[in-house]
């Protein structure tokens, strides 16, 4: 997907640190979340332990998200998430075409990684959606479930907890789907493991 020779230093320490923690918390939350949802009979982790771990991991993920959020407000990294609207749809199509057909024909990636643009259009779309829509929602709804007394009692005849619960589950589901696809797409580097190495040593 990329043809550069010079390694690019794309992932500064704070991003790598944030990323690995985010990955661990998300994984923990998905496993314990499933254990809470399907708890009787127990799958994977016992209910009480799952709730305790889920709560702690959720709070830690929220703090970690604040690091990501502030970092991307003020550092250069935040610029990678800015979507250039004009012609975006056709770029999205080109990237989709590459993943569905081009990649099998060993075609070069249409949007190789550069210091100016770290993400291809599909990555931009999915990262913005997950990091700036889904994650804030899952964190807020999680807070609403952690402290049910702050949740609005009812809205058009339905308990506020019902909405919060449903939103939390929906967002959690999106995150888990995202994680599967994200991990698979990381095998699209020079070799199957080169992108995994990049997020550890910082060089692409």
């Amino acid at each position: 997907m990329e043809n550069h020779n010079e390694p690019l230093y794309l992932y500064p320490v704070w991003i790598r640190f944030w990323h690995i923690l985010n990955a661990l918390f998300c994984l923990t939350l998905i496993i314990t979340g499933l254990s809470i949802q399907f708890s009787n009979p127990t799958i994977i982790v016992k209910f009480r332990a799952a709730v305790a771990v889920h709560n702690v991991a959720g709070v830690l993920l929220s703090f970690n998200y604040i690091v990501f959020f502030i970092g991307n407000l003020f550092t250069k990294n935040g610029g990678y998430y800015v979507i250039e609207v004009s012609g975006y749809f056709s770029r999205l199509k080109a990237q989709f075409h590459h993943y569905t057909i081009g990649v099998f024909k060993k075609e070069a990636a249409p949007f190789p990684v550069t210091m100016e643009s770290k993400f291809n259009p599909l990555q931009q779309f999915s990262y913005v959606a997950v990091m700036y829509i889904v994650l804030p929602l899952v964190i807020l709804s999680g807070l609403g479930l952690l402290y049910p007394e702050i949740t609005v009692n009812s809205f058009i005849g339905i308990s506020g907890l019902d909405y919060t619960d449903l939103l939390h589950l929906f967002c959690g589901f999106i995150v888990s789907i995202f994680m599967c696809i994200h991990i698979y797409f990381c095998t699209f580097g020079k070799t199957a493991i080169s992108n995994f190495k990049s997020i550890i040593n910082g060089y692409h």
Binding site: F69, G78, Y81, V82, Y132
Partner: peptide, 24 residues
């Protein structure tokens, strides 16, 4: 005219969060 949404999504989310806090 080329339109470029030159706003970091984090700022958009920050504004939305503030609106949410008020609505809440």
């Amino acid at each position: 005219m080329i339109y470029r949404a030159n706003v970091r999504p984090a700022w958009v989310v920050l504004v939305l969060l503030l609106c949410f806090a008020v609505a809440f």
